[in-house]
């Protein structure tokens, strides 16, 4: 565990440094050091490193960590290795709520209106899933329910978009919202992302023992003193908060929440005291690497969700194939 965490942390720091040095403009290793140490540099170098790259990279870490955490939480809550905000339509719910909010002009109400709507959308989907999982906890049922919810949310989003074709500015706003990006994300965005992660981590820590107990089934968990309704309430709120704000900040980023807890579990085991922080650490590192790759390798700024989906889908299928026997 310790060695594993050290390797991942080192990777994170190296990736962070690369993200500060690499990219357009004349910025050397020395310049980055100077900016970080507050020494004299040109206004342009300072702008590139301090105003653009550093907050963007830290935001990638925060969002990745939030998604990893949300994934581990969802898998624990639903006792299901394929559960994840993206797969279960939770992110789609957030995206839909944000799109509808934009279409009805909710964004004029203040900077928190759309992220707030996204959180509510995510929580709404989770509540339906929860009601479903209570009566039928099979993996296949849950995933199908998620697929159905995602397609309903997708249909509403498409409706908003088709209305948006008549009203071009609205359409553009919605499209930009749906695609998401790390581009132009800076300190205020990081402040939102970091607070979401901090709050989410605190709430996750609060229910982690409950999630441990849930591994043996809800009856055993209750017999061990777990208040299931409390656990669900806290868990659902946390996942909704994390998934909603991540979607609001950077668009729908799928599969990080699915893949990361699986990798983390292989190294730290199933205990949530270690699994939750490990998923956060690994998620943050992974998304930062993805962002560094899109910034420095790709010719155009690809939305981060595109890359994670391309990487994540094969992993999803492998997991699915492995547990084919368990799914009925």
């Amino acid at each position: 565990m310790t060695r594993w965490a050290a390797i991942v942390s080192a990777t994170l720091l190296v990736a962070l440094w690369i993200s500060l040095v690499a990219g357009p403009g004349d910025v050397s290793h020395g310049d980055v050091a100077s900016v970080l140490l507050g020494r004299e540099v040109t206004a342009l170098q300072r702008a590139l490193v301090w105003d653009l790259r550093l907050p963007r990279s830290l935001l990638a870490v925060c969002v990745g960590a939030s998604l990893g955490l949300a994934g581990a939480l969802t898998q624990g809550l639903f006792r299901n290795p394929l559960a994840e905000p993206g797969v279960l339509g939770v992110s789609a719910g957030a995206a839909m709520a944000g799109a509808v909010g934009l279409a009805i002009g909710l964004d004029a109400a203040g900077p928190w209106a759309i992220p707030g709507a996204a959180c509510l959308g995510a929580i709404g989907v989770l509540l339906v899933l929860m009601a479903w999982a209570r009566t039928d906890a099979r993996t296949s049922t849950l995933i199908l329910c998620g697929v159905a919810l995602a397609s309903v949310c997708g249909a509403v989003t498409t409706l908003v978009l088709s209305v948006g074709i008549e009203r071009w500015e609205v359409g553009m706003k919605v499209v930009r919202w749906l695609m998401g990006s790390f581009d132009g994300r800076t300190w205020p965005h990081l402040a939102i992302g970091a607070s979401a992660l901090a709050l989410g981590a605190a709430l996750a820590a609060w229910v982690r023992q409950d999630l441990d107990a849930l591994q043996l089934g809800s009856d055993t968990a209750v017999s061990l003193g777990v208040d299931l309704r409390h656990t669900w309430r806290v868990g659902i709120t946390t996942v909704g908060l994390l998934a909603g704000l991540c979607t609001a900040l950077t668009g729908v980023i799928g599969f990080v929440g699915l893949v990361v807890p699986h990798i983390a579990r292989a190294f730290v085991g199933t205990g949530h005291a270690r699994l939750l922080p490990a998923s956060a650490l690994l998620g943050g590192t992974l998304l930062l690497l993805v962002d560094v790759a899109t910034r420095t390798i790709a010719f155009i700024a690809l939305p981060p969700g595109v890359i994670t989906s391309l990487l994540g889908t094969p992993v999803f299928l492998v997991v699915l194939a492995r547990m084919r026997t368990e799914i009925t």
Partner: peptide, 13 residues
């Protein structure tokens, strides 16, 4: 019309 990040835009000065 080419998609360009803010970072590139700033680097062009």
């Amino acid at each position: 019309h080419v998609q360009v990040g803010i970072e590139q835009l700033v680097a062009w000065a």
